[in-house]
């Protein structure tokens, strides 16, 4: 019993169905389009939504980049790349500019994306209102009626309790002045990169069976109040120990020999590129 898998694993009918949902998502920015998510050979909750988008869209002429929490070499990024390579043979790259299709978990690369590139984000919880409303039927109605008082109230309560918002990653955004959307758990630092992005951004939630999108040049505003403005994470006074970058999202690491904390670019390929551009000392 020898089994040959189809190009990009899924059967063509499934791919077409996912692409149809994707087109609808692009047509209604920020709206979560339900789709019949397929089980994949990687864990449900390990990026199957993003992977289904990638598999349904990838063509032989694509150049693929996969990152997981900023790293091209993280185990899960490697595992996803390996599966795509095995079923498509499409070449992979670490260089953000060289990629046509980028699948990422929880980061938007530091190198600005350009027209023609496609960013696929993996989404664990696509519903920004789930935090205060467990029912899907109910949240669907709230979106339909553009009733986002709960989302505002949630931020307001956080400010009252903690004096600032504590959304961590996945800070909700308003897309095209219509839908409140979960940007996936990217740090607040990356939220502004979605605003008027030149690249098409697709978001896929496999377990929750939703696809949504931010088409190029679409307004994406992080929810905030006039008197308590949106504040991305910052690393004041710190620079990357390897490449010296300052205005980037950084990993906080601990040097056990020197017994001190140090910082390093979270986007590993960006860091590497900068290091290689610097004259050798």
């Amino acid at each position: 019993m020898r089994i040959q898998y189809n190009f990009a694993f899924l059967d063509e009918g499934s791919k077409r169905e996912i692409r149809r949902a994707t087109l609808k998502a692009i047509a209604i920015p920020g709206y979560q389009v339900p789709f019949a998510s397929r089980e994949l050979p990687i864990g449900r909750g390990w990026g199957t939504g993003g992977l289904q988008l990638t598999l349904s869209l990838i063509g032989k002429s694509d150049v693929l980049k996969v990152i997981d929490q900023g790293s091209d070499e993280s185990v899960n990024a490697v595992s996803i790349k390996k599966l795509i390579d095995k079923t498509t043979g499409v070449p992979a790259t670490d260089a953000t500019e060289a990629a046509t299709l980028i699948q990422s978990r929880h980061r938007i690369p530091e190198v600005p994306l350009r027209t023609g590139q496609l960013l696929v984000l993996q989404v664990p919880m696509p519903e920004p209102l789930r935090m205060y409303e467990p029912s899907e039927l109910e949240t669907k109605r709230l979106h339909g009626e553009k009733d986002y008082s709960g989302a505002w109230l949630m931020l307001f309560e956080q400010i009252m309790k903690y004096r600032s918002v504590s959304t961590g990653a996945d800070h909700p955004v308003m897309v095209n002045d219509r839908y409140v959307m979960a940007p996936s758990p990217i740090p607040k630092f990356d939220n502004p990169k979605m605003n008027y992005s030149e690249a098409l951004i697709l978001l896929g939630a496999g377990r929750e069976k939703k696809i949504y999108a931010v088409p190029p040049y679409t307004q994406v505003v992080s929810l905030a109040f006039e008197d308590v403005p949106f504040e991305p994470e910052s690393f004041p006074g710190h620079s990357c120990r390897q490449c010296g970058a300052e205005d980037v999202f950084m990993d906080e690491l601990y040097d056990s020999e020197k017994e001190e904390t140090y910082y390093q670019c979270n986007d590993t390929s960006y860091c590497l590129q900068r290091m290689n551009a610097q004259p050798l000392v």
């Binding site: 929490q69 929880h106 961590g168 740090p187 607040k188």
Partner: peptide, 10 residues
């Protein structure tokens, strides 16, 4: 790492 760093920041 990233999501946790964002939470830590908060």
């Amino acid at each position: 790492y990233v999501t946790f760093q964002a939470k830590l920041n908060d």
